[in-house]
Amino acid sequence: MQVSGKIKLINDTQTFGASGFRKRELVLTTDEQYPQMLMIEFVQDKVDILDAYKVGQDVTISINLRGREWINPQGEAKYFNSITGWRIEATAPAAQGGEAPATFETTSIAQNEEPDDLPF
């Protein structure tokens, strides 16, 4: 699964516990009618790939959705979701109000071919 947008924030790397688990968070603002700010985690060896990117850059991130169940001390089940990134690529900014790409039919007509005007 992939998500695209502009980098809003890149946090510093955090290290947890004796095992040295590493995590780094990135906030991505999607480029859609109602932009969403998504917190995406990069963990362990994927933390370092964020060094090549900066705030304001347009990117596409390959992600995995993760879900967990936790039973609290009262015995109630709680559920948590996370978005984990595993690849990031720079992209060109989304076109604002640009022309739609040419379709096959308009391309054929532009090459001086006669349009097929049969109803079937």
Rank of each mutant, 00 (worst) to 15 (best):
M1F: 13
V3L: 12
V3D: 10
S4H: 02
S4D: 09
K6F: 04
I7Y: 07
L9R: 15
L9W: 08
N11K: 15
N11S: 14
D12W: 09
D12C: 10
T13R: 10
T13E: 01
T13K: 13
T13Y: 06
T13A: 06
T13M: 13
Q14D: 08
Q14V: 12
Q14G: 05
T15W: 03
F16Y: 14
G17F: 15
A18E: 14
S19I: 07
S19T: 12
S19A: 13
F21Q: 00
F21G: 06
K23F: 09
R24G: 02
R24E: 00
E25K: 09
L26N: 02
L26D: 01
V27T: 12
V27I: 01
V27C: 08
T30C: 15
T30E: 14
D31C: 11
E32H: 01
Q33R: 07
P35M: 04
P35R: 01
P35K: 04
Q36V: 03
L38I: 15
M39W: 11
I40H: 01
V43C: 12
V43D: 05
V43H: 08
V43M: 12
Q44D: 10
D45R: 04
V47S: 00
L50Y: 06
L50K: 07
D51N: 10
K54N: 14
V55T: 15
G56A: 05
G56F: 06
V59E: 07
V59W: 10
T60H: 03
N64A: 14
R66K: 15
R66F: 13
R66Q: 14
E69Y: 10
W70F: 12
I71K: 14
P73D: 01
P73Y: 01
Q74V: 02
E76C: 04
A77Q: 03
A77K: 09
Y79V: 09
Y79A: 04
F80L: 08
N81M: 06
N81Y: 11
S82L: 10
T84W: 06
T84D: 13
G85H: 02
W86D: 00
R87G: 03
R87W: 02
I88H: 01
I88G: 03
E89N: 04
T91M: 03
A95D: 06
Q96A: 03
Q96M: 10
E99L: 08
E99V: 12
A100M: 08
A100I: 04
P101V: 11
P101N: 11
P101M: 14
T103A: 08
E105T: 08
E105Q: 09
T106M: 04
T106L: 10
T106I: 07
T106N: 01
T107I: 01
I109T: 05
A110M: 00
N112E: 07
N112R: 00
N112T: 08
E113H: 14
D116S: 00
D117K: 10
L118E: 00
P119N: 02
